[in-house]
């Protein structure tokens, strides 16, 4: 299963689960599987057209999906998807 790492900012939307493990062939499929269990998270990460919001970065292991195949990036069972939002606290 693919692990999805969410920052604390979004933990409320997944009932405080930290690392989520889901199946899927691509980043989009894995995240869709997460959203099916936690629908409120979708609006935080995706826009109404189903694309990633521009202030969100997504990584597969250490690489940004912007340098891969975006949401269609293939994933393997041991991969880790990391969500990186833009936060401003200082």
């Amino acid at each position: 299963m693919v692990t999805v790492k969410l920052p604390g900012l979004y933990r409320y939307y997944v009932k405080n689960a930290k690392d989520l493990c889901y199946n899927g062939q691509t980043v989009r499929e894995v995240l869709d599987a997460v959203f099916s269990d936690y629908p409120a998270l979708r609006n935080q990460l995706f826009d109404v057209e189903g694309e990633k919001k521009r202030h969100i970065n997504i990584f597969v292991n250490k690489a940004s999906i912007k340098d891969l195949e975006f949401l269609e990036t293939p994933v393997q069972p041991d991969d880790v998807i990391t969500i990186l939002p833009n936060i401003s606290g200082g």
Binding site: L9, Q44, H55, N57, P85, N86, G89
Partner: peptide, 20 residues
């Protein structure tokens, strides 16, 4: 390069609202 745009206003809380 990493964050080409800020989040829409209000979507990401500040520390004074969310704590740190």
């Amino acid at each position: 390069c990493v964050f080409p745009e800020p989040p829409p206003p209000g979507l990401v809380p500040s520390c004074s609202d969310g704590g740190v």
